[in-house]
């Protein structure tokens, strides 16, 4: 077997240097996705049909297009139509592109989480004459948060891997570094295996942290 163990092991320190960039892209995109996803969820629950439709179209649009197309649209396409976007940093374009896309998925996660809160909880609040927004803030939201946590975590896992698309905009993160290492050494298998294992390790660490958080937050319900 023509597997260069020495090269394989030494690829990790090179890749690890770019983990901060991968995490930066993933975390900031996720924060944007959570904020936008939350807003779209609220719009979904609007009694005004136009607002409801807007939310539905938003979700359909951003879910229905490959992430790469969205990144290219934002980074290469927008400056052509709107000159104000000329010189938009690739990092910002990536965060916006991935954030918008994942917000569409997250809004569906949040909507399901809110809908899965027992209707009796709302009725109890109403019967106690508590205002609707307070019922939402103090009763529904905390319970929906717990319901949404596993699926939101899955979205983050997906996002973490999707940051590898950022190399197409010229950002050097874990995958881009791997691509360059492989190009230099022609040791594709060793390099991409090291890249894959680096992502896997990040996701194992994240999953472990998430299950710890879930355990603590589930205390009231167990």
């Amino acid at each position: 077997m023509n597997f260069d163990w020495h090269y394989f092991v030494n690829a990790f320190p090179e890749l690890v240097k770019y983990i901060p960039m991968t995490l930066l892209l993933a975390i900031l995109s996720m924060l944007l996705a959570i904020v936008l996803g939350g807003i779209i969820t609220l719009l979904h629950f609007s009694h005004y049909k136009v607002i409801h439709w807007f939310a539905s179209i938003y979700v359909s649009f951003f879910r229905g297009m490959p992430a790469l197309v969205q990144l290219f649209l934002i980074y290469y396409g927008l400056p052509q139509i709107f000159p104000i976007f000329k010189g938009l940093p690739a990092i910002i374009a990536t965060i916006i592109g991935l954030g918008f896309k994942q917000s569409a998925y997250l809004s569906e996660v949040f909507r399901a989480a809110v809908n899965s809160v027992d209707r009796g909880q709302i009725e109890a609040g109403q019967s106690l004459n508590i205002k609707s927004y307070k019922i939402f803030r103090y009763v529904i939201l905390p319970q929906a948060f717990i319901n949404a946590l596993p699926a939101t975590g899955n979205t983050f896992v997906g996002l973490l891997k999707e940051t590898s698309l950022a190399f197409t905009l010229g950002i050097t993160e874990v995958f881009a570094e791997g691509k360059m290492l492989a190009g230099d050494s022609f040791k594709y298998f060793e390099t991409y295996l090291a890249v894959g294992l680096t992502y896997w390790a990040l996701i194992i660490l994240y999953s472990w942290a998430q299950s710890g958080v879930e355990k603590v937050l589930n205390t009231p319900y167990s």
Binding site: D118, G120, S127, L128, N129, K134, Y138, P220
Partner: peptide, 27 residues
């Protein structure tokens, strides 16, 4: 009026005392 439900409908995210305090504080 206040209502007592067949299925209790206590706020699951709150402790017993928080449940009782909730209508007093939120109103």
């Amino acid at each position: 009026s206040t209502m007592v439900f067949q299925q209790f409908n206590l706020f699951k995210n709150m402790t017993v005392i928080e449940n009782v305090m909730a209508p007093l504080l939120l109103n």
